Amino acid sequence: MSPSPTTRPATATTGHPARLTLSGDLARPALLTVAELHAWPVHHAEVAFECATSGIQHHRFSGPRLYDVLSAAGPGFDPVRRKDRLRFLIAVSGADGHHALLSWAEIDPDFADAPVLLALTVDGAPLDRAGPQLVLPQDRCGARHISGIDAIRVDGGYAPWS
């Protein structure tokens, strides 16, 4: 069985302060530690992205898929609305103030199925102290790679047909 988020306060088992808050339109909002994220199935991605200051970067990232972690948190899809999950947005915030926005369709296996990671290692080096990094292998530019993620909010509020 895959790990699932809990609503209990997380305690760092490795002495690091990194915590990730999952909130929004979720049945099971959570506060997760990097140690808890290590229990999820690990996926790998070889990524090349352009950085404005240092040119093209090549890295290997590993960690759980964002889709798996958020699915376990129970997004509030309306089963009566056809394709309701397509209106959901995912806002990711880093401790350094950087933000990124994704649509649910980008990470959903029934649609784009992008292998978006909550990376726990980069080039074999652990990110335990800094916290997970959002990695979008499909992005040519690394602007949505967010380091030290501290919050992810799922929002199903966008419904132009309401």
Rank of each mutant, 00 (worst) to 15 (best):
G148H: 04
G24E: 01
A35T: 10
W161N: 10
V34N: 01
V34M: 04
F49Y: 05
H98S: 05
M1Q: 12
A18P: 07
V80G: 01
P115I: 04
A119L: 01
G15C: 05
H38E: 15
R60L: 14
F61G: 03
G94E: 00
W40R: 13
P17H: 08
S71E: 15
T33H: 05
S93G: 14
L22Q: 09
S93E: 15
F61P: 04
L127R: 02
D84C: 06
L20H: 06
S23V: 08
Y158N: 07
V92G: 01
A72Y: 06
V116F: 04
F61W: 06
T33Y: 01
L32G: 05
L120V: 00
Y67K: 09
L31A: 03
A151H: 13
P9T: 09
A39F: 02
S62Q: 11
T53Y: 00
V154Q: 05
V42H: 10
D68C: 10
D25K: 09
D108M: 02
R153S: 14
A48E: 12
T21A: 06
V42N: 09
V135I: 15
G157H: 06
A130M: 07
G24F: 00
A91N: 14
L31C: 07
G148E: 03
A112G: 03
A159V: 08
R28Q: 14
D108Y: 01
A130L: 04
G142Y: 15
P115F: 08
E36P: 00
L70E: 05
L117R: 00
L117H: 02
D96W: 00
V42E: 11
R28D: 11
S23K: 11
V122Y: 00
L89F: 02
S71T: 15
I149M: 02
S71C: 08
G76Q: 10
T11Q: 14
V80W: 14
T14E: 15
T11N: 04
P17R: 15
H99D: 07
H98D: 05
E50L: 12
A114D: 10
P5K: 02
L31M: 13
A45Y: 02
L32A: 06
A143V: 13
R81C: 08
R87D: 14
D139V: 05
S62E: 14
V135M: 08
A143P: 13
V135G: 00
L26E: 08
L20C: 05
D139A: 13
